[in-house]
């Protein structure tokens, strides 16, 4: 179905559809656009345009709390992405290729972190860390919530997302390619290294990008498992919004927006390599 499909819609209906589509696009983009525009507002009053200025970016980036939050966010995102890429890919391979005891249980469990709401995941982990610390503290060390608990929590949900994306890729994997490699004298490891891994790599990379995005996006879970000094950027923004809207927030938001868009374009470029549009959305 590559051409324009005219299936029996009247001209008025077709025009109505087009108008509607652009209204929806406006709905999706206008708020973001306004936010970005006002981040360059020279006036400190949020509703009055006072000329173009980078002032708020400067102020935001001079704010130690914000720079520290950015650093925490980046560290957590990188660590959780790398770890979950490795663990998630291994789980995906095991589930796709092997039968072993506990496979069914794992297959069911690995999807749960995706399904359950953030807030429940957040309180679960909060309770878990509270209990774990109580237990560990009885041996001496005094543990508190911090950057490591945030990273550990992010890995917990990112494994699942990476696993799902990689499995979607494995689903379409032509197993005869591996048989061909083995027929051509490759050992099991060589087959994995030379054939399987290169072919699932786009899936692994897409999973990694998704993990990175989700980690940088997360507010709720981070808010519950971070301690003083380990505030992530979204948690900082979230608590600031509750106190009120400032032009500084617009500036930070615009930066976050730019980062997300860079990630989207990156992942689209990755998937473009072979997947059709429908596969892209299926992966999500």
């Amino acid at each position: 179905m590559s051409g324009v499909v005219e299936v029996g819609l009247g001209r008025r209906t077709r025009r109505g559809l087009a108008v509607w589509a652009w209204v929806v696009f406006a709905f999706l983009y206008v708020p973001i656009f306004v936010l970005v525009v006002f981040s360059f507002n020279a006036s400190s009053r949020v509703n009055i345009w006072g000329g173009f200025s980078f002032q708020w970016y400067g102020e935001a980036l001079r704010n130690d709390v914000i720079t520290s939050a950015i650093r925490v966010s980046l560290i957590v995102a990188l660590v959780s992405t790398v770890v979950s890429m490795v663990l998630g890919t291994a789980v995906a391979l095991a589930l796709d290729r092997y039968r072993f005891r506990g496979r069914r249980a794992l297959d069911g469990t690995v999807y749960l972190p995706i399904v359950i709401p953030d807030i429940t995941m957040a309180v679960m982990l909060l309770v878990f860390f509270a209990e774990a610390f109580k237990f560990i503290d009885s041996f001496g060390p005094r543990l508190t919530l911090g950057i490591s608990t945030v990273a550990l929590s992010h890995i917990a949900f990112n494994i699942s997302f990476v696993c799902v994306v990689v499995r979607a890729r494995l689903d379409q994997f032509d197993r005869t390619l591996e048989e061909a490699a083995r027929d051509l004298y490759a050992t099991g490891w060589q087959t994995f290294r030379r054939v399987t891994l290169p072919l699932i790599m786009p899936g692994v990379a897409a999973g990694g990008l998704l993990a990175l995005t989700l980690s940088l996006d997360d507010v709720v879970i981070s808010a519950f498992v971070s301690g003083p000094g380990s505030t992530t950027l979204p948690v900082y923004v979230f608590s600031s919004i509750r106190r009120g809207v400032t032009p500084e927030l617009n500036a930070i938001s615009t930066l976050m927006l730019a980062a997300s868009i860079a990630l989207v374009l990156g992942s689209l470029a990755l998937q473009r390599r072979r997947a059709s549009a429908s596969q892209q959305t299926q992966v999500l």
Binding site: L28, I32, D217, S253, S260, S267
Partner: peptide, 17 residues
């Protein structure tokens, strides 16, 4: 793009608007 864009920022955009 909006699908992948930071959800918090998008809610903030509505709040701001």
């Amino acid at each position: 793009i909006p699908f992948w864009t930071n959800a918090l920022v998008r809610v903030f955009a509505i709040r701001f608007l």
